[in-house]
Nucleic acid binder design. Sequence first.
DNA 1: CTGTTAGCGCATTCAT
DNA 2: ATGAATGCGCTAACAG
Lengths: 346, 346
Amino acid sequence: METAFGSQPSVGRVTIADVARAAGVSIPTVSKVINNRDGVAAATMLRVQQVVDELGYETSLVARSLRSSRTGVVGILVPEFEPFSTELLRGISRAASGTGYELLAYAGLVTGADQPGWERRSLSRLSGTLIDGAIVVTPTTALSSSSIPVVAIDPHTGPEGHATVDADNEGGARSAVEHLLALGHTRIAHVHGRADLASAQLREAGYRQALRDAGITVDERLVRAGGYQEDQSAEVARTLLAEPDRPTAVFAANDSSAVGVLRAAAELGLRVPEDLSVVGFDDVPQASMTTPPLTTVAQPLTELGGRAVAMLLTMLRGEPTSAHVRLATTLRVRQSTAVVPTDTRR
Amino acid sequence: METAFGSQPSVGRVTIADVARAAGVSIPTVSKVINNRDGVAAATMLRVQQVVDELGYETSLVARSLRSSRTGVVGILVPEFEPFSTELLRGISRAASGTGYELLAYAGLVTGADQPGWERRSLSRLSGTLIDGAIVVTPTTALSSSSIPVVAIDPHTGPEGHATVDADNEGGARSAVEHLLALGHTRIAHVHGRADLASAQLREAGYRQALRDAGITVDERLVRAGGYQEDQSAEVARTLLAEPDRPTAVFAANDSSAVGVLRAAAELGLRVPEDLSVVGFDDVPQASMTTPPLTTVAQPLTELGGRAVAMLLTMLRGEPTSAHVRLATTLRVRQSTAVVPTDTRR
DNA sequence: CTGTTAGCGCATTCAT
DNA sequence: ATGAATGCGCTAACAG
């Protein structure tokens, strides 16, 4: 680390002032050159351009965004980077490629502060300035007073104020449970997700509906809270599966929860799928790496991300958009489900 | 959410000035309250705090970072969000959890501008302002004149100026080729990666070394450029596999390339692994979802990310760090490799 | 064509 | 304990 004296820009970043000084022009002139604005003599332009290249100057995103409204950056706000978000991110990245927008993904929950207001906080911190628009993943609160276009993926409540993109959670859940029913299961448990997310509520609703349609009364003791999280789900599964009349199948609200259930089953010496069938939801890439590979309801995650981008770009263009997009889910049968064990069949 | 009348903040974001006005104090006072600085009467503090909550005010990351040096945000600079980066991101996210730092991932290449200087550009745009430190994924140029601490993952050249984290690329490549040799293969092709990345060079070196150690001269026609990309690799594989004395096995420089090879093989009617063995590198989650599941060299991706965070945090604390961390790789044998077909054995 | 003047939202002296 | 003034890096109006 060299200490620079004088105006050596080696430490600290090169600012527009450094360029102006080196080129012997004023700051606004440099600004004009950088932004390809006309009203600059060709000769001056060339000289400034050269100095810019020499010094390796880049406009500060921050300073620029403070001044001008447009930044050409779209923000993706996620609670944290886990498989679900990162798959969406892939779809978003692909869809945003070549649109002229750059992507800025912000994880607002890493601080460990479990306040549910992370999305509002993050949005406030970035909007109005840094980003032109935002895609918010699994927001749990209303994002009403935002000054920039916002698209929500898998939000708190369904179609409310703002534009949303999600999958057919209820139908997907129903297909999962129907799959288990078709295999002869009747004692089917449900490890449900975060109660503050519409997706979790809808999946539970689908679960209940499917059982009702089959003429089975839901045993409330078989419905437990997993919070969409592996550890929490493993814990509830441990108690659930240790009980005398344990279920023969578990429908977990998402893949992380399913992995937790798988873990608990292994600890209790239960074989999957011989002793216990498990179904997840999402079909994150990791779902095929579990032992055994997980049967799950696939959401088209990358497509969800792509759609969100498309909607946001439309909104940024000032054109009208459909307020809500819902994509279909598909049951992906792998090896964590099998016919109900004969000794527990009734 | 009721609209507070008086100073209607409904449009645009709530600024510190709005809070000051509503609380009947000056801006600096609000600033002090927000930053828990002393020199404010308890009563004033309370009142301001209350207004802040009511209005839902959050300091603008942009404005703050422009003024003060520390932002509490770490930047992750990636060319784009694909499986490799997103896996690293997961590891980084996990490791950063609870450290008090928030994460900001920036994809600098989405514009489609294929200029290799994306990492310098992005770094310049964000550093000195938005972020306190950065983790740069697969930088292809030197990041010398940065004013903030930087850790590079899988960089251009090995240990040069700055701190780096990578895996044992050469050893991993050797183990992959040795695996193929053990299965009886002798005509082993290599689809190599981006020439501007040390990892690609090292994997090729490992490939050559393993063959040499086995007393096999490298047939240069079997070494093609795949650029770490699926499409490009599929293309070179198509020509490679259509030739009369085609190889019986391909070692692809990464999993994306391997997927491309798999695709080309399928198009040509070649069965994997019966007619052709394929090995990849990285072990991204998607590798187990290919048909057949891909044999590959696993890099501990999430751990690479975690280590990078640890190093960066150490640097941010001003403490000395080891300049270079290298992690081991593991061969993960799945179903895309088999003994060499008898009819082509020589 | 160019430079001067403002001010974006905030944090920091330094007065009061 | 509080507020007026200043500046971070940059761009938008204007004036020369």
